[in-house]
Amino acid sequence: MIKMMDTAELEKLARLARIAMSPEESQGFRADFNAILKYVSQIQTVSDAAQTEGGSGALRNVMREDGEPHESGVYTDILLHEAPEKENNFVKVKKILP
């Protein structure tokens, strides 16, 4: 049996996911999650004898040669154009070390 989610656990998960929630969202989510978790718990009844390949067909590694790099800097302008804050040719963030 799955234990129901409490507020402290929800807040911890939201912090792990880097998401701010309003108090209303937090309250609503807890009720939603408990209904959803109760529903998805039915998977415990699936017989999982088949440990074969599934889903998307045969699993295989797709490799490519590590070569033919593009010319340095050709994508810099278009990519940096999307950055919220930048300085010279860098994206800028608040300081990382306290």
Binding site: L13, A14, R15, A17, I19, A20, M21, E25, F29, L37
Partner: peptide, 21 residues
């Protein structure tokens, strides 16, 4: 935390937190 709190709607937050769980 603020960017994602303001940028995502409720259903997106719900699924991200559920996935984290």
């Amino acid at each position: 935390v603020k960017t994602r709190g303001e940028g995502f709607g409720a259903e997106v937050k719900r699924r991200i937190i559920l996935g984290t769980y």
